[in-house]
Simulated assay, not measured.
Amino acid sequence: MPELVSFEATQMGGIIDRVPMIARMQMIPGLFVRLDEALDRANVFYAGPQTALYRIHGEEMEVRVGVPLFRPIEGFEMFEAPAGQGLCERVLGPLDDLPATYRAITDEINARGMTRGVWARETYRFIARDTAMNVTDVSIDITDRVH
C-alpha cells in the first residue's frame, strides 16, 4: 500500500527534455545514458541517488533526470526537485511493472480523496546488473496538505 511521504526541495543537475507521450517508454532510457555520460565526462564517480521527475504537457512528457548537485557542472542543467508530499510505493526488483505501480498509486490517491499534484518521481535507491536487487521509490505528488 502506498505510503504518504514528504520531499525536501533538492538542487539537482542533469538532463531535462520533452518526449512524445506515445514514445516515452522507448526514449526515456536514452536520457539516463546521457546522464551517465555527463557524469563520466565530469569525472564524477558517485552522485546519487539518481532521480527522475515526470510531468505531462498535453501530448508530451517533460522528463528531468539528475543527481543532487550543489554547484553547476559543465554538461548538467540545474533544476530543483520541489518540496512537497506524495504517495510512494517502494518497488523491489525489475521495473517491468511501473505502469501498474502508477495505477495503484493513482487509485490510492483517489480512494483517499486526495488531489494529484504535477510531478511523478522515481528515486533509484539501488540499481544492479541483477535487476532482482533493484530498489526504486515510485511516487506521485499530491497537492493536499496532510497534517
Rank of each mutant, 00 (worst) to 15 (best):
G66F: 02
P2E: 01
R34T: 13
E77N: 07
P68S: 08
R129M: 15
T131K: 09
D137E: 11
P99M: 13
G30L: 07
T106F: 08
M21H: 10
A47I: 04
M61F: 03
E8K: 00
I28S: 06
F126Q: 09
R41M: 07
V44L: 08
V118T: 13
M78G: 07
R116M: 15
R125S: 07
I140R: 02
E77Y: 00
M12V: 03
R90L: 10
R145Q: 12
E37Q: 10
L87T: 02
P2W: 01
I142A: 06
G93H: 04
T10Y: 03
E3G: 01
R145E: 14
A104F: 03
R125Q: 12
V33R: 07
G30K: 05
R71E: 13
A100D: 14
Y54A: 05
P72F: 08
I16S: 04
D17F: 06
V91Y: 00
T51W: 03
D141P: 01
R41Y: 11
I28Y: 06
F70M: 15
T123N: 05
S139W: 00
F79P: 02
Y124K: 07
I109K: 00
R116L: 13
T51A: 11
V118H: 04
E89T: 10
L95Q: 13
G84C: 14
E74Y: 07
E74M: 09
G117N: 07
I28D: 03
D96F: 01
R129L: 12
D130H: 12
E74A: 11
A120E: 12
L98G: 06
F70H: 15
Q11P: 03
L35M: 11
V91C: 06
T106W: 02
L53W: 01
M114I: 12
D130G: 09
I22W: 08
I140N: 01
A100W: 07
T10K: 09
F79D: 01
P49T: 13
Q85A: 08
A9G: 12
D17H: 12
Y124N: 10
R125W: 09
R145A: 14
A9Y: 07
P99V: 14
P82G: 11
Q26V: 11
P94Q: 10
A128L: 05
G48K: 07
R18T: 12
D107E: 14
D144R: 09
R55Y: 13
R34V: 09
Q26H: 15
A23F: 06
P68F: 04
G66Y: 01
F76M: 08
Y54I: 04
D107L: 11
A38Y: 02
Y54D: 04
M1A: 11
M12T: 05
Y46E: 15
I142K: 04
V33D: 13
V135N: 05
W119M: 09
L87Q: 00
V63N: 04
T115G: 13
M133R: 14
Y46A: 15
P82S: 11
V67S: 03
G86K: 00
I22V: 14
L87F: 04
